[in-house]
Amino acid sequence: MNIKKLINRLLVLFALSVFITGCSVFGLDLQEDYDYKKSLLEEKVNMTAWEYLKKRADGNNPNDTVFRWMKKAIDYSGIDTLEYTKPNRTYIFLHNDAIRRVNGSQVLQTNCFFYDYPIISKNPDGSVIFTTPTSGIPVTTTPTKSWKDYDKETVKKYLLYLIGQGEYSYDNLDQNEVTLQSLLSPGSVATKESRLGYMVTPSSVPGFTTASTGTPAVFTFDYVGNNGKGFDPEGKFTLKLSNTADSKLFFNGGLIVRSSNYRATNGTIHVWGVTVRPSR
């Protein structure tokens, strides 16, 4: 072996030794025992739920208005906004998509409140107009475009249903379903201008039940009788975590959370991006 080749090999060995040492110096150890510890994100927003909603509805950032349509409901309904500042609460917030989901052409899409609860066309006597006299399927107006298409008191009741008494987060939730009393008074009923007023809630008809096992509840609608109530008869909702690695949060048995565990100074906020039906 000539001197030149020997020197080149020595230089290569030297460079490798420097690299290996450098890995340790810069915190890049080649092998290290590490016990993975699962943790759930806890985002402290350092403000009240009301301040957080306003900030992300019509704040200074035009690219972050995800709660704009929820705030429109609050403004229209006249609900006391102090309810969003009181302590020991669980707040269900609605992403814009949960209320008004549209495509690039601004056409209303499925699985949002405005689509699932359209305004019902009626005869002069107040009876529902059906597509055919015997179909039992109501004729609806053009898709809902504004909260003002609904009765103001019904919108207020809906918002009250989305505020739970008691604070529930990943600290005290698990796979066992927890039932919360909302601010909605027991026995509350939705008005009949929209499909919501005809939704049959679990206790409206004897023997009627809904699923609460991780699949969306199935509701029926009564357009001719008096069984439609719209709201949970007790004004209650449920929360639980899925028994999976990501511990998804479920509302009323089936609705999977969009994002969760935002810790406001007066409670915990969980956000849904699909229609939140106001009954178990």
Rank of each mutant, 00 (worst) to 15 (best):
Met1Asn: 04
Leu13Phe: 15
Leu13Ser: 14
Val18Phe: 14
Thr21Phe: 15
Cys23Ser: 12
Val25Met: 13
Gln31Gly: 00
Tyr34Arg: 09
Ser39Asn: 07
Leu41Ile: 06
Thr48Ser: 12
Ala49Met: 04
Trp50Glu: 01
Glu51His: 05
Arg56Leu: 14
Ala57Gly: 09
Asn61Asp: 15
Asn63His: 04
Thr65Glu: 09
Trp69Phe: 14
Met70Lys: 04
Ala73Trp: 07
Ile74Asn: 01
Asp75His: 10
Gly78Ser: 06
Gly78Asn: 06
Thr81Gln: 14
Thr81Met: 13
Tyr84Ser: 01
Arg89Met: 12
Ile92Phe: 09
Phe93Val: 01
His95Val: 00
Ala98Tyr: 10
Ala98Pro: 08
Val102His: 01
Gly104Asn: 13
Val107Cys: 02
Val107Phe: 11
Leu108Cys: 05
Thr110Pro: 08
Phe113Lys: 00
Pro118Val: 04
Ile120Thr: 08
Ser121Val: 13
Gly126Asp: 02
Val128Pro: 02
Thr131Leu: 15
Thr131Met: 10
Thr132Cys: 00
Thr132Tyr: 07
Val139Tyr: 13
Thr141His: 14
Pro143Ala: 10
Thr144Asn: 02
Lys148Gln: 11
Lys148Trp: 08
Asp151Ile: 03
Thr154Asp: 07
Thr154Tyr: 05
Val155Phe: 09
Lys157Asn: 15
Leu159Ser: 01
Leu162Arg: 00
Ile163Val: 06
Ile163Phe: 05
Gly164Met: 06
Glu167Cys: 11
Tyr168Val: 04
Tyr168Gln: 07
Tyr168Asn: 03
Ser169Ile: 05
Asn176Trp: 10
Val178Pro: 02
Leu183Val: 03
Leu184Trp: 10
Pro186Thr: 08
Gly187Gln: 05
Ser188Tyr: 07
Thr191Asn: 11
Leu196Val: 04
Leu196Gln: 04
Tyr198Ser: 00
Tyr198Cys: 00
Met199His: 06
Met199Leu: 15
Ser203Ile: 07
Ser203Asp: 14
Ser203Tyr: 11
Pro206Arg: 11
Pro206Gln: 13
Val218Cys: 00
Thr220Arg: 13
Val224Glu: 12
Val224Asp: 06
Gly225Ile: 01
Asn226Lys: 13
Asn227Thr: 09
Gly228Pro: 11
Phe231Pro: 09
Phe237Trp: 11
Ala245Glu: 12
Asp246Arg: 12
Lys248Asn: 08
Leu249Tyr: 08
Leu249Val: 12
Phe250Cys: 01
Gly254His: 10
Val257Lys: 01
Val257Phe: 03
Arg258Thr: 08
Ile269Lys: 05
Arg277Trp: 12
Ser279Thr: 13
